[in-house]
């Protein structure tokens, strides 16, 4: 122990004369950090200084902005994986679009085929010409019968208008 103290004394003298190496100074710091109590009086003088140096060297480092990983450093962790059924609206929209397109295509084809077929446009709608003739006659008679129905009413109206003209003429 005495030997160690003598070494430290010698190192201290070198230290104050600025003749110590970095390793020797590190040794001094370590010695004082490890020997907290019961040192000879002459060695106590430099104790607070070396303990201070040692403690400052061990000072914890606060967190800096550079310690926080940038968002692009871990792209995997940022990626959110959802099951495919979470995108149901996407699939519904595609399905709806497909149904709409399919419907309009069939509709167009149907219309196009019907308009371009002259046989279908001029085809007769009867089987027996005699019955067709009778049916036509009956329909026309029904029209003429109802047409004459309103005619008498119109005649009455014309009487009125004539009378009105006469009256107006008389006044004038």
């Amino acid at each position: 122990m005495c030997m160690e103290y003598n070494d430290i004394r010698a190192l201290l003298e070198k230290y104050w004369a600025c003749e110590t190496t970095e390793a020797e100074e590190a040794q001094l710091r370590l010695f004082y950090a490890e020997h907290e109590d019961a040192l000879p009086v002459d060695l106590m003088e430099a104790a607070p200084l070396f303990r201070y140096f040692h403690a400052e060297g061990e000072m914890p480092m606060p967190e800096l902005f550079t310690d926080v990983p940038a968002p692009w450093e871990h792209p995997e962790s940022a990626k959110i994986i959802r099951p495919f059924w979470h995108h149901w609206m996407k699939y519904a929209a595609v399905l709806l679009l497909a149904v709409g397109v399919g419907y309009s295509v069939t509709k167009f084809q149907h219309k196009h085929a019907g308009g371009n077929n002259p046989e279908l446009a001029f085809r007769d709608t009867f089987d027996d010409p005699k019955i067709a003739y009778q049916e036509t006659q009956r329909a026309l008679q029904l029209i003429s019968k109802h047409l004459n129905k309103g005619k008498t009413e119109m005649e009455k109206l014309s009487y009125f208008s004539e009378a009105q003209e006469i009256v107006q003429g008389g006044h004038n």
Binding site: E36, P48, R51, Y52, E56, M59
Partner: peptide, 27 residues
């Protein structure tokens, strides 16, 4: 806030902190 190397009694700690503060001020 200077970390203590070993555990001490409150009195020793206070004394030590005071000494550290003085050295800090001195430097």
């Amino acid at each position: 806030e200077v970390p203590a190397a070993h555990q001490h009694t409150p009195h020793q700690q206070a004394e030590r902190s005071d000494l550290m503060r003085r050295v800090h001020g001195l430097i």
